[in-house]
């Protein structure tokens, strides 16, 4: 066993593999292309000016934050239905990545809102429900990381994960209703939904690819990390005891 492993190349003691290394290089190339097109080659928007460049990273991040949430709900459902530990780890890994992405989306959205609307925050349906989404994700992570029995936290977090997307939909619907009853959502009229074309559309397209590659790369690494954490959880106690014993022994 040892000889083969000793001869193995670098990357043995990591969550990386040849596949993730290729993916990582592609992601970095994608990000470089995104910076080139988003910051240099694409023209400023007619109405928004330079601020439109924020959207090339903001919109793809939002999309992949939502994809992460769906993966969490699907993974939780598969875990509850099929007892699949693999899906449980997918749910956990994507929930954590979705949390990072959602936080990024909120902050970049606020930075975009300041020059566009003159304020960092408006009580718009999209903003408000994204903020609630972040809180719901934090709740899921809090339960998944509880210092409790492995079965307890996976099962309980899976139920929260299962309810994640339904909750987001209900929250979003109610917030939208709440805002539109009082005022028309005019603020976003020339915002994210505005028509874009040419080099700007291409930059956004590059953004989707680059952020998507980063998402996939992170998901694989985070999944493997979660898998290792579980292994350690199982073996943890025995190993710790053995280690303590060997420490005490005179060598």
């Amino acid at each position: 066993m040892t000889t083969q492993l000793d001869a193995a190349p670098e990357g043995l003691d990591s969550t990386g593999s040849r596949g993730t290394r290729v993916l990582g290089v592609l992601a970095i190339v994608g990000l470089a292309a995104l910076a080139l097109f988003g910051l240099v080659l694409s023209p400023p928007d007619a109405s928004q000016g330079e601020v439109v460049r924020i959207l090339y990273v903001h919109v793809p991040s939002a999309t992949f934050a939502y994809i992460g949430c769906f993966l969490t709900t699907i993974g939780s459902a598969m875990f509850l239905w099929r007892r699949s530990a693999w899906w449980e780890l997918v749910a956990y890994a994507s929930a954590e990545i979705a949390t990072v992405f959602t936080a990024i989306v909120l902050v970049t959205g606020m930075i975009w809102g300041r020059p566009t609307w003159g304020v960092f925050w408006v009580w718009d349906a999209r903003l408000t429900s994204t903020a609630m989404l972040l809180l719901l994700l934090l709740g899921y992570l809090a339960v998944r990381r509880l210092p409790a029995d492995h079965d307890v936290r996976t099962k309980r977090s899976a139920i929260i994960g299962l309810l994640l997307v339904p909750n987001v939909i209900i929250v979003r619907q109610s917030v939208q209703w709440w805002r539109t009853l009082h005022q028309k959502p005019t603020l976003l009229a020339n915002g994210v939904g505005a028509k874009i074309e040419g080099l700007m559309l291409f930059s956004l397209f590059i953004g989707f690819i680059a952020i998507g590659l980063v998402f996939a790369w992170l998901l694989i690494h985070r999944f493997r990390l979660a898998w290792l954490e579980d292994q350690l959880d199982d073996a943890g106690l025995d190993a710790a005891i053995a280690e303590r014993r060997s420490e005490g022994e005179p060598s």
Binding site: L135, A142, V143, L163, N167, I170, V171, V175, W178
Partner: peptide, 19 residues
């Protein structure tokens, strides 16, 4: 833990009942 989990979920109820 309970407030963190429950209050975001109950946001629609707070909005609805208040309106």
């Amino acid at each position: 833990l309970l407030p963190l989990l429950l209050l975001p979920v109950l946001a629609p109820v707070l909005i609805g009942s208040t309106r």
